[in-house]
Design a protein around this nucleic acid. Sequence first.
RNA 1: GGAGAGGUGGCAGAGUGGUUGAAUGCGGCGGUCUUGAAAACCGUUAAGGAUGCAAGUCCUUCCGGGGUUCGAAUCCCUGCCUCUCCGCCA
Length: 425
Amino acid sequence: MLDLKFIRENSELVKQAIANKNEKADIDKLLELDEQRRKIIVEAEELKAKRNKVSSQIPQLKKAGEDVSGVLAEMKTVSDTISELDDKLRKVDEQLNDILLYIPNIPHNTVPVGKTPEDNVIVREWIPDGFSFDDDRKFSDHIELGKKLSILDFERGAKISGSGFPLYTGKGATLERALINFMLDVHINKHKYSEVFPPFLVNKESMIGTGQLPKMAEDMYHIEKDDLYPIPTAEVPITNMHRDEVLNEKDLPISYVGYSACFRREAGSYGKEARGFLRVHQFNKVEMVKIVKPETSYDELEKIVSDAEDILQALKIPYRVLLLCTGDLSFSAAKCYDIETWSPAEKKWLEVSSCSNFEDFQARRAKIRFKKEGGKKPGLVHTLNGSGLATSRLMVSLLENYQTIDGKIVVPDVLQKYTGFQIIE
RNA sequence: GGAGAGGUGGCAGAGUGGUUGAAUGCGGCGGUCUUGAAAACCGUUAAGGAUGCAAGUCCUUCCGGGGUUCGAAUCCCUGCCUCUCCGCCA
């Protein structure tokens, strides 16, 4: 959420930013409501001041034996008028909020302006020793490998739940678990994040806090009976840990890492893109979340990206880092880097991580503040998060890159102590 | 799921219709005292909003939402959460 005052004072800038993000919002309507709102408040507050004053005098008048019936009648009218104004205010506030909650964050000035993914900027590329894009071996894709080695069973996953719900079996299941544990350990021990294991169902307030609702409702699962949402990412529960809290400046930055299953409806995505692991309704992800002071958030963003890259370098999987353009930037983000790994069978880059700085956009929605040293007013924190990493597409790159000529999978060195085996055959 | 109890400031804990934004204690901050520290004593200690150049003034907030009343932390309804007992259960 943007600051209403900021929008009032920078309406043209906000309009431009929204257009750059390929989004829409009726800023003029918002400003009109804002004006109405303030007018009503002034009117109502004058009456409330009067009511408070007179009400406190009534006991004294009674004590003095005076007749207060006239005053009571007058105050009744005043109170009725106040109720009317409060009702009016509530309605205006609701409309105002409806618009505010749909206004996206403003891109940072280092974000390239662009419309489509083609306008994203490749920041860097990393390949392990001995790797070549021109390798002319015949690469099996992850679906063939999964089937042949009995480690992935998409058919049965679809039978149990539906398409897009992958089933790992045998050494595939072990490998998945190894990957998650390896990533968690690196972030906890090497990068010094504190570990959390969050709930997978959250309430509406949490979904609004991080910006998934109301805008992205169609992409979320919703359990109607209990009004709970299966999380699309651990970002939601972890960032919302500190919703409605005032933190101490000395406790910042806070860095959390946690594993969760992630649930996404992916409404409207069908076809080839959805094959196997490429687009699924449930996947596993290790997520990093940071809550920081505003002045450090862009340094912290670079750190999150490098922490995520560290995993891929340890796994020796080719990847590249993209700086997303304004048009490809998500609703809540001010700046975002994507990390993509190479799939030699698809001959494509696959998104395995997204690292974003939300500045105070989520903090304002979720009311996450911090008390500055020296007793100044609490200010909004900046929040960030990054996948470190999502396993499903990473598994695609891992299986494909580590396959041998005779169709086996060599387990990456760093994972072997987690799997307990060196090869899948 | 059934039966009770309760949710008050950073924390603990008073307060059952009228100067209560809220006693008291602890903690925090500032000061006096001290070579320094402790103790003691004194003072101070919420957030959000409207308005204003500012100082300030005003409004709101005692879990959330409605209601009764001239007036609500206090009464009524409702939602959420916590605790105790019972039942069920990985």
